[in-house]
């Protein structure tokens, strides 16, 4: 619909929308995160939900303890190799549509603990990540920014067409293989279907 016509109509008290807009509007304003704290970043996540920063303003104050009721996983902290299978399993238990915010340097790449033998070097090796926020820990404002970014992303999703998101494509996976404990580390060390390391431009 023509944007100007829409504005014009709204001036006369007529509200027009599309199904897609309505659907995305509803979804983006009630993203329920999973109660799931891993490390130091989780404390900042808790601080974000408290009175001062008040995450409830973005419709995301309902933290659910069960993955079956959650839409969003905030990977807030260092994922160790011992914890990684559980993180993937929790992600698999969440119903579609589901999103992941990688909060903090550790969840993105291992961060300060990248050299550790038991540290997973980025959760994006096993599950797809929607928003990354750098920081160690990211400030509550940064987490809110990540929320807004996610909301924009949800808002822009199309219901039809080739570009439609994963959960609307019947043949795309919604569960990902859980890594196993090996003798020296996790097996496999990454999931090649999910992990797409950045390429340096021009190579």
């Amino acid at each position: 619909m023509d944007q100007e016509l829409k504005i014009e109509l709204s001036k006369h008290g007529i509200f027009t929308t599309t199904f897609e807009e309505l659907y995305n509007w509803g979804r983006k304003n009630s993203v329920w995160p999973l109660t799931f704290g891993l490390a130091c970043c989780a404390i900042e996540m808790i601080a974000t939900t408290m009175a001062r920063y008040d995450l409830a303003r973005f419709g995301a104050e309902v933290f659910r303890a069960s993955p079956r009721q959650a839409d969003l996983m905030i990977v807030s902290g260092t994922v160790t190799k011992k914890m990684a299978p559980q993180v993937v399993r929790l992600y698999n238990q969440m119903p579609e549509p589901k999103y992941v915010i990688a909060m903090g340097a550790c969840a993105i790449s291992g961060g300060p603990f990248r050299d550790g033998y038991n540290v997973l070097k980025g959760i994006d090796r096993y599950i797809p990540v929607d928003v990354h926020i750098p920081g160690c820990p990211p400030r509550p404002e940064a987490l809110m920014h990540a929320f807004i970014t996610l909301q924009k992303k949800i808002d822009a999703q199309q219901l039809t067409g080739e570009e439609r998101p994963r959960h609307l494509k019947a043949n795309e996976p919604s569960e990902f293989p859980v890594p196993e404990f090996g003798e020296h580390g996790l097996e496999p060390a990454q999931n090649p279907d999910v992990f797409h390391p950045l390429r340096i431009l021009g190579q």
Binding site: S109, N118, K121, H184, G185, A189, Q190, L198, R199, I200
Partner: peptide
């Protein structure tokens, strides 16, 4: 299988897949 705090411990090689 390993004892990682020993001085001669070598972490598994596949850890070092760089982002490039």
């Amino acid at each position: 299988a390993d004892y990682p705090m020993r001085k001669d411990y070598v972490p598994p090689a596949e850890d070092d897949v760089e982002a490039v």
